[in-house]
């Protein structure tokens, strides 16, 4: 794995291509909560060496150079990462949405984007074993795993 500055994303990947890493296998992003990690997996087809290249992007202004002029195969990967994580790829030749139809939707794979179904659906696990106590209080408030507290719909 190689960590690079996002401002040098194009330069680093170009230099790697010159060194033989001419095949882009995959490009995606990971929401780390504090920032986004942009990840490219490149392969040297002659030596079958492969390398993960990672650049940190700030969540509120995720802008990076498009790799499409270097790797034509980055086209759809960048369109997917753009709509799923809210990343702008500067110089992308065809920055339309790839899979999503709703232009106004928040990027669904950002951790800050609530899943409407998990907000609207009361979690069955919120009930307490033995039911509410005599005073009607719940012994301990339980939250569904993996759902941030601020998303959870208030139960009855």
């Amino acid at each position: 794995m190689r960590t690079v500055e996002s401002s040098r994303w194009w330069e680093e990947l170009s230099a790697l291509a010159v060194d033989g890493f001419t095949y882009l296998d995959y490009l995606t992003a990971i929401d780390r909560g504090t920032h986004l990690d942009l990840v490219a997996h490149v392969v040297n087809p002659d030596t079958v060496e492969h390398l993960l290249v990672v650049a940190a992007l700030p969540g509120d202004s995720a802008v990076v150079d498009s790799l499409v002029p270097l790797h034509a195969g980055a086209n759809w990967h960048e369109r997917e990462a753009a709509e799923m994580f809210g990343i702008t790829f500067t110089g992308h030749p065809d920055p339309r949405r790839l899979l999503l139809r709703d232009e106004s939707a928040a990027p669904p794979l950002r951790k800050s984007t609530p899943l409407p179904a998990r907000v609207d659906t009361p979690w069955p696990g919120a009930a307490t074993a033995g039911g509410d106590d005599a005073a009607g209080r719940r012994a301990r408030r339980q939250l569904p795993p993996g759902v941030p507290a601020q998303w959870v719909a208030e139960g009855p």
């Binding site: 659906t121 069955p124 009930a127 074993a129 033995g130 039911g131 339980q142």
Partner: peptide
């Protein structure tokens, strides 16, 4: 069943409901 709620809380699909009283 002891109404412990483990199955309800672990279910990824949220498809189990359980009611009990003490």
């Amino acid at each position: 069943c002891t109404s412990c709620m483990l199955c309800v809380r672990e279910c990824p699909s949220w498809c189990i409901t359980l009611e009990s009283h003490a």
